[in-house]
């Protein structure tokens, strides 16, 4: 497959920490508009993969291209985010001393330089956009609450809302339903599927029922490289996958 048509193109990416190989010759491609679930045992390199895509960790070797041309390994986090790659952390990370509204306002797609933010005045469209997101994430009634006072599930949703406000081309979502009730999990799955229509999404998740609810192509990582790829049913049937992950 050539890199040109892809949204995200990882080829031969390796990262090691003190001799431990977190990523080992990892190759992966994502097409525009695609949604992908990534599963794998602990230490398979799922979070490290997100780190190298978002610029938090520099790979030792390998190529990472965005939209077939931009080399992500040369860029810092902020520039990568501004290219249109949004990230949701495993542990919900929101700005706790700010209100829900302010959290979304900070995430909202807008000029990011200090002087621009100093003189920023919220426009009618921006206000409408935030209202929209508040509705989507069902946080409307809590818009003035401090983010720190939200429940765990609400924080997860707020963070997804912030991703939406960022309006990225590619969303990286790390364990979005960790610690959620079944009902919340189901809502989250529906929310992500809605988003997937307009954006490309990579979801890392342990929860098999959630992955099944998403109903998308699955990549199984193990020991820093791709073990199998395909529909959930096909990878579930893969003997290697059963051995290293599902079977246990």
């Amino acid at each position: 497959m050539s890199a040109e048509d892809t949204l995200l193109y990882l080829d031969g990416v390796s990262v090691s920490f003190d001799g431990f190989r977190a990523l080992n010759n990892l190759s992966l491609t994502m097409m525009p508009g695609e949604m992908r679930a990534i599963i794998g045992p602990n230490g398979a390199g799922k979070t490290t993969m997100m780190d190298v895509i978002t610029g938090k960790t520099r790979p030792d070797h390998g190529t990472i291209l965005f939209e077939g041309e931009t080399d992500l390994t040369k860029l810092r986090e902020a520039s990568i985010a501004n290219l249109g790659i949004g990230r949701k952390f495993q542990r919900p990370t929101v700005f706790e001393p700010h209100s829900v509204w302010d959290n979304l306002e900070l995430a909202l797609k807008a000029p990011r330089s200090p002087l621009k933010t100093l003189t920023y005045a919220i426009s009618r469209e921006d206000r409408a956009r935030i209202e929209d997101i508040l509705d989507i994430t069902r946080l409307s009634p809590k818009r003035d609450r401090l983010a720190g006072s939200l429940s765990h599930g609400e924080k997860q949703w707020l963070e997804i809302g912030m991703l939406l406000a960022q309006d990225p081309k590619l969303l990286l979502v790390d364990e979005p339903v960790a610690g959620m009730t079944d009902a919340e999990t189901e809502q989250t799955a529906r929310l992500l599927c809605d988003i997937a229509g307009k954006h490309s999404v990579i979801v890392v998740e342990h929860d098999m029922s959630f992955v099944r609810a998403l109903g998308v192509k699955v990549t199984v990582l193990a020991e820093g490289s791709v073990l199998a790829e395909g529909s959930l049913d096909s990878v579930s049937a893969n003997q290697q996958v059963i051995d290293v992950y599902l079977g246990r």
């Binding site: 520039s79 990230r87 700010h98």
Partner: peptide, 27 residues
Amino acid sequence: SKLGKVLVAVRDTESRVRFLGYNTESY
């Protein structure tokens, strides 16, 4: 101002602010 909100966000969770596309160093 919004700048101030970014600053407070940097204080508490700098890396999150970076992943939102803010160049936290310049702030």
